[in-house]
């Protein structure tokens, strides 16, 4: 019923919308600018006492070029985007706002601001008008687009691994979300990051097993401080796209590590304060994708670490808290002058 009513409404309204013509800058907008804006925002001139008056805020509205150039602080007109165009935004501030424009006299009328808004929305078409000579500007000077630099290496890996992988189904995610935070690692890819912040004490091997349904979508798994044991490896081993695994401060150990040796995409494994010993490290030796290994506070020895470093020359293996030498003895070099 409601749909029908809206349809009828739409039928009546739409011709009016269609009939509204594009704003004619010279005939409609310019007169407003001339009357309300140009006394402050125009080319420098000498006033009656012979003093030079510069345009306020460096902004000139007497020229197409200058309008697109903007003020001392940046663009005031972004064609197509009234919400980013200060020359519209400042006219619709509450009338007690110190920044409202025009600064003197009454605010513009609703009809006037609406016109300005429409003109900008339609692309700020100046028609044939150029006004006074302005600085060289390109046809549509927009605020610079966010720099699209190549993805950092880590993100590029996630992008590549995500190719062709279907996103996890919502129903599978819903159950897991009761205890976990699950987010995308890249905004436009299917791969996920799973963590259990604030739920560590309730997160045991069974809770993590709830991820099984979409295990291959998980790129980052953070189990820091969770109540997991070696048995959690049974779930982890299914995560064939796993790049980052964080088992900090858990009871995870050698048996678990041995079970996940087949993860071929793993870049970073955090075993800080776990039960892992030199025996477990043997499992890591063939994992050539590893770049970062954290072993401080585990049961490994100098020997075991040296051996691992030999096998994985490209990985950074952190084994000690590398407090700078003599940090406790450091005495300042007093001034010499």
């Amino acid at each position: 019923m409601r749909t029908l009513r809206s349809l009828i409404l739409l039928l009546f309204l739409s011709p009016a919308v269609v009939a509204q013509e594009r704003v004619d800058f010279e005939a409609e907008v310019l007169p407003i600018l001339e009357k309300r804006c140009l006394s402050c925002h125009r080319a420098p001139y000498e006033d009656s006492t012979g003093r030079t008056k510069n345009p306020k805020a460096g902004l000139r509205l007497d020229s197409r070029g200058w309008m697109l150039h903007g003020s001392d602080t940046g663009a005031v007109l972004v064609p197509g985007q009234p919400d980013k165009s200060l020359m519209y935004q400042l006219t619709v501030l509450p009338d007690d706002d110190a920044d409202i424009m025009p600064a003197k006299g009454k605010p513009l009328t609703k009809a006037q601001t609406d016109l300005l808004q429409r003109w900008i929305s339609e692309g700020a078409d100046f028609g044939a008008w150029t006004g006074r000579p302005g600085p060289e500007v390109t046809e549509q000077e927009e605020t610079p687009a966010p720099t699209s630099s190549p993805l950092p290496a880590k993100l590029a890996v996630w992008k590549a691994l995500g190719e062709g992988v279907r996103p996890a189904g919502e129903s599978a995610l819903t159950k897991a979300r009761r205890n976990a935070q699950i987010r995308l690692v890249l905004p436009d890819g299917p791969l996920l990051r799973v963590e259990y912040l604030s739920f560590e004490a309730d997160t045991d091997d069974d809770v993590v097993a709830e991820l099984t349904g979409f295990a291959d979508r998980i790129a980052v798994l953070r189990l820091a401080r969770a109540q997991v044991s070696d048995a959690v490896a049974a779930t982890i081993v299914r995560m064939k796209n796993l790049t980052h695994l964080d088992l900090r401060e858990t009871e995870f150990g050698d048996a678990g590590l041995n079970k996940i040796r087949g993860l071929s995409e793993l870049r970073s494994v955090n075993l800080f304060e776990t039960n892992v010993s030199d025996r477990g490290l043997r499992a890591l030796e063939k994992m050539e994708s590893l770049q970062d290994v954290y072993l401080f506070g585990s049961n490994v020895t100098d020997e075991g670490v040296a051996r691992l470093r030999e096998h994985l020359p490209n990985a950074k293996v952190r084994y000690e808290l590398e407090l700078p030498e003599g940090i406790l003895e450091t005495t300042p070099n007093r001034r010499r002058r």
């Binding site: 900090r248 952190r318 808290l321 407090l323 700078p324 450091t330 300042p332």
Partner: peptide
């Protein structure tokens, strides 16, 4: 500078090392 920098050096160096060792 002689008063302020050495303790800052120690704190910053420790912070970075500590963060690093924990991943």
């Amino acid at each position: 500078m002689a008063d302020k920098c050495p303790p800052l050096d120690r704190t910053l160096a420790t912070l970075l090392a500590d963060l690093e060792s924990r991943g």
